[in-house]
Computed example of a mutant assay.
Amino acid sequence: MLPWLLLLICAPLCEPAGIPVSDVNLETQPPGGWVMEGSKLVLICSVANATGNITYFWYRGALGSNLETKIQHSLTAEFEIVEAKSSDAEQYYCAADNGYGPVLSELVDITVRVPVSRPVLTFGDSGTQAVLGDLVELHCEALRGSPPIFYQFYHENVILGSSSAPSGGGASFNFSVTAEHSGNYFCEASNGQGAQRSEVVTLNLTGRQPDDPLRSPPRPVLQESSYLNSPDPRQLQSLYENVNVVSGDDIYSLVYHTQQEMEPAVAQHMRTHGASEVSRVSSDIYSKARKINIADMDYEDPM
């Protein structure tokens, strides 16, 4: 047989058989599947061994929504997400095929980290006016940011306290107001992707206000007992004064009535002798003003 004929017959039979794709793997850049929002995410699909041209596929989600398809004569291929968004946080996988059937990689979780936004500092229900001795709540909250979020509270550029929000949202710090707590406050929020600082808020303090006399409870008033046999030793005793008043040629007797506290011994005397004696004494003191002749009176000139 002619040599050239032998070569034609042997050529397709003597070539080594093609090697199918094996050990398909999906890696990410940055590594670990963590990427910042707005940053580039690279999905790298690779095979351990294969011959010929290889068709690569990238899929999003466990149900396999196809993102990209490339044909390359290499053991690796890349697919880029130029600016990662929070909605890109998903599971991804890739597949490779060189004519022997596709081989799939394992699922890879992609986490998109969202930096914290500028937080807002508030003073709870008290607002920016506080009274000495009050309990004030500082509340700091970043509206955006991947958890956990760590917060620090500052008074005049000195750390007053700290708190954290493991699941996101805001955090609070409480303190009792003293005279040293007036001044400027701000807070910082961070989730490992850089810190953001709130605007400065000023807290104004006032001394504790005196009680409103209109709202103060009435003071107890000592009232005269209606009963002579009352056990209260502080009885009120009636005193009477007889005053002579000169009007022309006539003199009138006027009686003035005043009250003073009775001594306990007098109160006891009244309880012992009863109301009859008091009535008798009162009848002797009270008298009708009588008209008398000025010539019959010997009086001192009060002047």
Rank of each mutant, 00 (worst) to 15 (best):
K40M: 13
Q72A: 07
D109V: 05
S65F: 06
V116N: 07
T28H: 08
V112M: 00
Q91N: 06
P102E: 08
W58A: 10
S74N: 13
E78P: 03
F123N: 03
L43P: 07
I71N: 13
E78W: 00
Y92N: 02
V120I: 07
E90Q: 02
A62N: 12
S46R: 15
E78M: 03
A96H: 05
V136I: 11
I54T: 04
L104N: 13
G127R: 01
G170F: 11
D134G: 14
I54N: 07
N66M: 12
S164M: 08
S126M: 12
G169E: 06
D88Q: 00
L160V: 05
V131L: 15
L160K: 13
A77L: 09
Y93L: 01
H73I: 03
T28W: 10
C94A: 04
A89C: 07
E37F: 10
L107A: 11
L67K: 09
F79D: 05
K40P: 13
Y100R: 09
G170C: 09
E78F: 06
S39C: 06
S105T: 06
F153M: 09
P119Y: 04
S39H: 11
V112D: 04
E90T: 04
V136F: 02
G169C: 09
Q91E: 11
P148H: 06
E37Q: 14
C94W: 05
I149Q: 13
T122K: 00
E37H: 10
A89H: 05
A171W: 08
A84M: 01
G124D: 00
E141N: 14
A84N: 04
S164W: 02
I110Q: 00
L75H: 02
F153T: 12
I149R: 13
G127I: 02
S162D: 02
G124P: 08
F57I: 08
F123L: 06
V116E: 09
A142H: 14
S164T: 03
E90V: 00
R144K: 15
V131G: 15
F153S: 08
A96P: 05
A142G: 12
P102V: 03
W34I: 01
C45F: 05
L121F: 05
T128L: 05
Y92A: 01
T76N: 03
G161M: 10
L67P: 09
D97S: 07
A95M: 11
A48C: 10
F150L: 06
P119A: 03
H139E: 10
Q72R: 13
Q91C: 04
L132Q: 15
Y151Q: 06
H155I: 00
F123T: 06
A62R: 14
Q152P: 12
G101C: 10
Q129I: 13
W34E: 03
K40L: 14
R113H: 12
A142N: 12
W34K: 13
C45I: 11
T111H: 01
N98D: 01
P31D: 03
G133I: 10
I159M: 14
S167A: 08
C94F: 01
Y154C: 08
L63P: 11
D109C: 01
L135H: 15
Y59P: 07
G168V: 12
F79Y: 14
I54K: 06
I81Y: 03
V116H: 04
V42L: 09
V136D: 08
V108K: 09
A165K: 10
D109E: 02
V114P: 10
S126T: 07
G145D: 15
V82E: 15
D134A: 15
R113S: 04
S146K: 09
R113T: 13
D97P: 09
C45T: 12
S74E: 00
E106T: 08
L43E: 06
Q72G: 07
